[in-house]
Amino acid sequence: MRRRRIKPDELDLWDQVARTTTRLVPPKRSVIADVPRANKPKAMKPEARSIAPFTLGGGSAGREMRDVMPSVPDRLRTAPVKMDAKSYKVMQRGKLKPEGRIDLHGMTVAEAHPALISFILSSHGAGKRLVLVITGKGGRREDIGAIAPQRMGTLKRQVPHWLTMAPVSSAVLQVTESHLRHGGGGAYYVYLRRAR
């Protein structure tokens, strides 16, 4: 098959289009390009040099700011239900009575962690299914000299994490925030697996 020849009016049209475009990728450097040119480079247009002023703490326009990590209640709410769905709904409504409880409120992390592990393992060994872990909601503390905001409620954030780690992870089936009648956001329901 023979190629057809390009007509002069088609070449003129192509030249007009080519003059109105800008190159997306800069041309590759060659040895010839390193030779100094006699012509001066073209000055940039004033509007190309102007940059929007930067403001500290300013987000990008039209975008919503999001926390890097979702809150503990959000993570627990979106976690898959591993226990019986009917029992889960009854538990969420506060209708199931916890068979045991531990109050970690006011303890340090070093005191609370071993106390929680001991409580969960002994409750599982005793055949209990639903226990209540009270952490407290975490008070608000304002440090005048603080540079960065500090999250409060260390136990509230740490307890769900501890319950997914050995040695108690094999005993725990479901963790969720408790109903208001059992402490609401300051306590967790821990649904244990059947003891074998």
Rank of each mutant, 00 (worst) to 15 (best):
M1P: 05
G62F: 04
R101Y: 12
G57N: 02
R37G: 02
S123K: 09
E142A: 08
H179S: 08
L56K: 14
I32F: 02
V81P: 02
H113D: 12
L163N: 14
K128S: 15
K86H: 08
H182S: 13
P149S: 04
A79H: 08
I117H: 11
E10H: 11
R129I: 00
A79G: 07
S118C: 07
R157C: 01
M107I: 06
L56A: 07
P80R: 14
L11I: 09
F119A: 06
R196H: 06
G185T: 08
L173G: 03
P36Y: 04
S71K: 00
R2F: 03
P8H: 05
D34H: 13
Y189S: 02
P26Y: 04
P27H: 02
I120S: 12
T22F: 15
G100N: 10
I51K: 05
V109H: 13
M1I: 03
M152V: 06
L132Q: 11
V35T: 15
S71G: 03
P46K: 08
R37T: 14
T21H: 00
Q150S: 07
A61C: 07
Y188Q: 09
T135S: 08
L96Q: 15
A85L: 12
G125A: 10
V131W: 05
I117A: 15
T176I: 05
Q92K: 14
P98Y: 12
A115G: 13
G127H: 08
Y189C: 09
P70E: 13
K156R: 15
I120E: 15
G125R: 06
D143K: 11
E10W: 04
R3M: 01
G183A: 14
K28E: 07
S169A: 15
V175D: 09
Y188S: 10
M69K: 13
G153Y: 02
A85T: 12
P36F: 03
R77W: 15
H161K: 14
H182V: 11
E99C: 10
N39Q: 07
K97W: 04
A115Q: 12
S178H: 05
F119T: 03
M83V: 07
V168W: 00
V25L: 10
V25Q: 10
L24T: 14
A166W: 02
G139K: 11
S118V: 13
P53N: 06
M65Y: 10
S169L: 02
D74G: 06
L76F: 01
G138S: 00
P70M: 09
P80E: 10
P53T: 05
I6N: 02
G183E: 08
M1T: 05
A112C: 14
P80M: 13
I51L: 03
A48I: 06
M1L: 02
A112P: 15
K40E: 04
L192K: 03
P27G: 01
Y88N: 09
V17T: 14
D103V: 14
L76I: 02
E99M: 10
V81W: 07
R2P: 03
R66L: 01
R141W: 01
L173F: 05
K28C: 01
R141K: 06
H161G: 15
K128G: 07
Y189R: 00
G186K: 11
W14S: 12
